[in-house]
Amino acid sequence: MLSWIVLIAGVAAIAAVNWYFLMAPKAAVAAKASATAGQEVTVAVEGGYSPSVVRVKSGVPLRLIFDRKEKSPCSEEVVIGEFGVRRFLKPFEKTVIELTPAKPGSYEFTCGMGMLRGRIEVQA
């Protein structure tokens, strides 16, 4: 009896872990028009990126604002490989990165070690 409970609980726990971390859909947020020029979107950095998917328009200057709310060294750098960006994010401050996505597509941004990930989805 006890064995069955342990077995079923174990399988359920494994399923829950994998669903929660890997399968559950990630929320995407669209960039909004910036007050002065182009579009902007703020990404909170705390153990991960939220939102982790940002939708932006191509050809419009984009202001990516990384709001780092922690000191953990895991998130100290943000790398946007496709745009040749590697920037240090000061803890508890907002860092503005300006770039203009020219071509529609999906571009990943990660932490310095590639553990934390997010995506810029550029739409035509």
């Binding site: 971390f21 990630k26 153990g47 991960g48 990126y49």
Partner: peptide, 19 residues
Amino acid sequence: RQFYTRAWSAFRHRVADMN
């Protein structure tokens, strides 16, 4: 302490790491 706070904030972002 850092392992627990960082693991928690990662968890909220559906991220699991070394912490």
